[in-house]
Design a protein around this nucleic acid. Structure first.
Lengths: 220, 220
DNA sequence: TTTGTTTTGTACTAACTGGTACAAAAATGG
DNA sequence: CCATTTTTGTACCAGTTAGTACAAAACAAA
């Protein structure tokens, strides 16, 4: 399969990321970049939950053959676990990066607005990879559930930190503590995502945003 | 297949419900009650989304044979459509019944608490049949999406009416109009459901409940 | 060139998916 | 008892699922 990396004799495997094996110079070289392929898989899973994403569809999205797939990723579940980890890592990195040039309130509303505006960009809402699969994996794939919970908690911590910053900077009310507001924010974000998937109109979306805005400023 | 209705020569088909055909006295009589079997299917779908519920699992839950199934319900999708309709009808009926002996605030918090406490009763959270499938059906089954949206709007109207009652009775603040609060309530309820499926702990759940309680009373 | 190592392509599997064909069974009306 | 009508049981279908077996291909080291 012709690939971006085909002419490159040794793809940057093991050089950039900790989850790749150490590069060995023996044997036939891989015709693809493992990290790039993993990124493609993650993006596919983002739009198709674990069960809905069939292996053959995944392989097309990843642009590798079945034999290469099993050799590199062992199984569909193992691949998905790596995708979940990659997702959480990238998202949290992105969020933390925002802290350098935005206020806490700006970051939170940016996240809400980006989520909603995905409809225009992708033709559909993507939601959160974790949450999209929480539904499907619940009581069906305990191993995946445990991983989802673990990374969900990481997100909660991340938002808590941001909100705490905002409270110390005086942009966010201290009526609720940072942990409480982090839960409320996550609830708002996820609620919105599935409300939209269920067909919520603009007015309903605005209502929820208005409600959350008020909660960040409650003095009462 | 031995059934509750086996000895009863003519099950009450067509007598009680509009969606059943008019009873004919010719031909071999059905060995099951259509409404009862539909109820079983609905309950099974409540715990297993449309894709996850395989036909063979459904048949076991419904306690009818494949031939009886296709004769009566035509296809898996048709069955599911009837289950969605039955769910919305029963739930909205239940909610409206509560209005007779409870305040609006009591009803809303009862719904929230019942949803959460399902964990203890069923060992897992069931969530809302509509919302559980909004995720799965989104961009995959347009017909089902349309039906979900339609009934989602019915729920929104129902909660709007209840909240309006509460506002006129003075139990709920009029800072937000009834429609806005209805959206906020649905958002809270659905957000909670998937947060719990993602592994949210007690503290996070309480945070969201606290936030919603405050929103019902905002004067600011 | 041979040996060792790894990746890749092709072919296959068994189990499961929703759905159908058709004859036997069970009732009614004549 | 027979014809008609409907339900039921049994057997089947093609397509898909995740996953495997194995040989051919592509490289490095000797």
């Amino acid at each position: 399969m012709t690939q971006t990396q085909t002419n490159k004799k040794y793809p940057a495997k093991g050089l950039s990321h900790s989850n790749s094996k150490i590069e060995t110079k023996v044997g036939r070289p891989k015709e693809f970049d493992e990290d790039q392929v993993l990124e493609r898989a993650m993006n596919y899973f983002w739009d198709h939950d674990y069960d809905s994403a069939s292996l053959s569809d995944l392989l097309k999205a990843m642009k590798i053959s079945k034999s290469s797939f099993y050799q590199t990723f062992s199984s569909k579940q193992r691949l998905f676990e790596r995708c979940l980890a990659l997702y959480a890592k990238e998202q949290i990195q992105w969020i933390n990066k925002q802290l350098q040039h935005k206020t806490a309130v700006e970051i939170l509303f940016d996240i809400l607005h980006i989520s909603i505006s995905e409809i225009k960009e992708f033709g559909e809402i993507r939601g959160c990879l974790l949450m999209n699969n929480a539904e499907v994996c619940y009581k069906k794939y305990p191993d995946l559930c445990a991983l989802i919970k673990q990374q969900f908690m990481q997100f909660h911590e991340t938002f808590k930190t941001i909100i705490n910053n905002g409270q110390q900077a005086g942009n966010i009310s201290t009526y609720y503590d940072a942990s409480t507001l982090s839960s409320i924010f996550i609830n708002t974000l996820n609620g919105l995502s599935i409300m939209i998937k269920a067909g919520a109109d603009k007015e309903m979306i605005e209502a929820v945003l208005k409600g959350f805005k008020q909660q960040l400023q409650t003095k009462q």
